[in-house]
C-alpha cells in the first residue's frame, strides 16, 4: 500500500510540475490541480497509513493505537477547500487574461 501511495504521489507531482512549466495557461491550471492532489495525498501519508481505523475516539475505548490520526485528515479537508477555491479564482483570471490579451500564453503574448 505504501508503494502504491508513493507511486501515486510521485506520478501526480511529476505530471503536475511538467504541466506547470508549459506555456499555455490551461495547462498550468491543470498542473496546479494535479500538484494539489499530490500534496493532499502527501498530507494524508504524514499521519501514517492505516486501513479500517476510525479517526474519532469513542467514549469508553482508551487504546489510541486502534485509531487513525485525525489531524492530517482535518488538514487535508482544509487544504482541499482552499486549493479548490484558489484554482477556481485562477480560472477566472485566466479567462480574463485570454479576453484582454487575445492569447492563452502565460505571458499574455505569443513568442514568434
Amino acid at each position: 500500500m505504501e508503494a502504491v501511495l508513493a507511486l501515486a504521489i510521485g506520478v501526480l507531482t511529476a505530471s503536475g510540475v511538467w504541466l506547470v512549466f508549459r506555456p499555455r495557461t490551461f495547462q498550468v491550471v491543470l498542473g496546479l490541480a494535479l500538484l494539489s492532489y499530490a500534496v493532499n495525498l502527501f498530507i494524508l501519508a504524514a499521519g501514517r497509513l492505516r486501513t479500517d481505523a476510525p479517526p474519532i475516539i469513542g467514549k469508553d475505548v482508551v487504546d489510541p493505537t486502534l485509531y487513525a490520526d485525525p489531524v492530517p485528515q482535518a488538514l487535508v479537508l482544509t487544504a482541499i477547500v482552499i486549493s479548490f477555491a484558489t484554482t477556481a479564482l485562477l480560472l477566472v483570471v485566466l479567462i480574463a487574461s485570454r479576453g484582454l490579451t487575445g492569447t492563452d500564453h502565460v505571458d499574455g503574448e505569443d513568442d514568434q
Binding site: 500538484l35 485562477l90 487574461s97
Partner: peptide, 23 residues
C-alpha cells in the same frame, strides 16, 4: 491581469510547498 496571473500561479504553487513542509 497579466501580472496577477503570474502572481496567483506562483502563490498557489508556494502554498503547496507550504503544505508539504507542514506535513
Amino acid at each position: 491581469t497579466r501580472a496577477s496571473l503570474h502572481y496567483i500561479t506562483i502563490n498557489i504553487a508556494t502554498s503547496l510547498l507550504f503544505l508539504i513542509g507542514v506535513a
